[in-house]
Simulated assay, not measured.
Amino acid sequence: MSNNIATRETEISLAELRGDCARMAPHWVAPAKSAPAPVAPSRIHGVTVPASSARLVDAMSEYGD
């Protein structure tokens, strides 16, 4: 594997990088955010919680400590 790095990559300024990003931003369209669908408890399987962790969570107040 070579350690050669193009000289141009090391000489780019922050302003140039920000300009490049600003020009590319319209090409990167993100999908609209949506809330995840709830999952039925019967579909959740294979999750194991150590007893010490379960006791810790059980001992916490409703809004956290």
Rank of each mutant, 00 (worst) to 15 (best):
R43Q: 15
P50I: 06
S61D: 13
I44E: 11
P38T: 01
K33Q: 11
W28A: 04
T7G: 05
A40T: 14
L56M: 08
Y63E: 14
G46L: 02
E11A: 10
I12K: 06
S2K: 01
G19V: 03
N4H: 12
I44G: 03
A22C: 06
M24N: 06
G46W: 04
L56V: 12
E9W: 02
R18F: 10
A54G: 02
V57Y: 08
A22L: 11
V49T: 05
I12V: 14
G19K: 06
T48D: 13
M24D: 09
S42N: 08
L14N: 02
S53R: 12
I5S: 00
G19I: 03
R43H: 13
L14V: 14
D20G: 14
S53K: 07
A6R: 00
I12W: 01
R23C: 06
E11C: 11
P50F: 09
H45P: 02
P41M: 04
I44K: 08
A32M: 03
A59R: 12
V49K: 01
R23I: 02
D65F: 03
T7Q: 06
A51G: 06
I44T: 14
V57I: 15
M60G: 05
E9Q: 11
L56N: 07
K33H: 09
T48E: 10
D58I: 08
D58S: 13
D20P: 00
A25Y: 01
S52M: 07
A51W: 00
A51D: 15
A15M: 04
T48Y: 09
E16G: 03
P50R: 09
V49F: 04
L17R: 15
E11V: 01
M1N: 03
T7V: 13
A40E: 06
R8S: 10
A51M: 04
G46N: 02
S34G: 06
D65C: 07
M60V: 10
K33A: 12
S13H: 00
A54E: 08
C21P: 00
